[in-house]
Write a protein that binds this DNA or RNA. Structure first.
Lengths: 217, 217
DNA sequence: GAAACAAAGTAGTCAATGGAAACATCTAAC
DNA sequence: GTTAGATGTTTCCATTGACTACTTTGTTTC
């Protein structure tokens, strides 16, 4: 038996069912297309087809939505870096004795994944670094820390390898992270032509590895 | 003879005389105190004591004001770096045979000036890097390029010194600039404790100089 | 020195927004 | 089955950026 839908009156039930997810989804698109500034709760509600006050049931206010977006961004960034670090070991074609890639290559891959994530999601990257998050936005900070931890681990790996000199791995990790951060910000800014990204990343990584290698080598 | 001012009717002339400057001034304060997001043209007008439409005579719209702030920020940043690089030669107390500082010290001073400017003006720094400037905001880009040029020159100086290896000075300069940029962003973010700033800058500069020194040395 | 004119400020209006309150509807637990 | 809580709706308000028409002031030109 067919359930006939009235032509004008839509069949949409009173409750959307997954408004929160729909909002985040639409917000992400809006963020990408128009930037955080021009992201309006009412616009999102309209787009989804829900009343303008409905979003407030899921996000206390506009900033809460932005915080959620930033948090999701850090999670995705962490995943991208993780993927870059874990895949590639037995990368596609020639399996067999592949073994692990060299440490410098691993650094380059992780950093490159970060850089491309940032430049492919400029508005999101800006939002993640906006630092305007709520006083109590622990979730954002935590997601950021989690993504950052991979850089930290990588440094420790290099130190264990004797490819990097000893020293506070967090400090060294911050510097590498910050360098990529800065480069991508400048690319997203327009201060640097996007075409130079890969070259800059390569140079930066090479420079970093030389600067941070153990004294004797 | 005393000029008596009416108690209620103010003596302020019809024309403010320097509204543009007053707006920029108030805006800079507002930016510092409440961030770019909560900077309202009407608020500024109220604070200055002028009608809400008056600012439009001087700034086509809100973004134009923000652009002007960013431009001024880059000018000030450039000046701060310039001061750090030119002063200090015969720095205060013991004059006499002072002479020029060592290149590494000069790099550290310039970078440190940049870093402190950025962390002492977090909202301004964010605005300067927001990259949401008008399509035709050449002035902002130009001011930024001008500030950046000093980093460029400094690299060339190091190369002439044979303290830095050869290579595109712009590329190397970008990397150093980006590193400081990233560190300060993370400090302003809250991702890094502000107390670590100087230590991080020192480490970053040392790491950079090691990484970029000529092959043989 | 007066008239024409441009510059700078004012007042009023509009649509959009975020936020809040009061009310409606669905769902789940008892 | 009723009731409580979650989720949506409607209505309302203050604020904001932007626009238009008008007024005041300062300057240039004759």
């Amino acid at each position: 038996m067919l359930v006939r839908m009235p032509e004008t009156a839509e069949q949409r039930p009173y409750h959307h069912g997954s408004l929160r997810a729909a909002l985040l989804d639409a917000a992400e698109r809006g963020l990408r297309e128009r930037g955080a500034d021009r992201l309006s709760l009412r616009d999102l509600a309209r787009e989804i087809g829900v009343s303008h006050a409905a979003p407030r049931r899921h996000f206390a206010d506009r900033q809460a939505l932005l915080d959620a977006l930033a948090e999701a961004g850090f999670v995705r960034l962490g995943a991208a870096m993780h993927a870059a670090l874990s895949e590639g070991d037995g990368d596609g074609g020639d399996d067999g004795g592949g073994g692990e890639r060299e440490f410098p290559t691993r650094v380059r891959d992780a950093v490159s994944a970060f850089a491309h994530f940032a430049t492919e999601n400029p508005a999101l990257h800006a939002l993640m670094n906006a630092g305007k998050h709520r006083p109590g936005a622990t979730r954002v900070a935590q997601a950021a820390a989690s993504a950052f931890a991979q850089m930290y681990d990588l440094i420790e790996e290099g130190q264990a390898n004797d490819t990097l000199r000893q020293g506070d791995p967090e400090e060294i990790g911050i510097i590498l992270y910050a360098t990529v951060q800065g480069i991508t910000t400048m690319v997203n800014n327009g201060m640097i032509d996007a075409a130079r990204l890969d070259g800059l990343i390569d140079t930066a990584v090479a420079l970093f590895l030389r600067g941070a290698r153990p004294p004797g080598r």
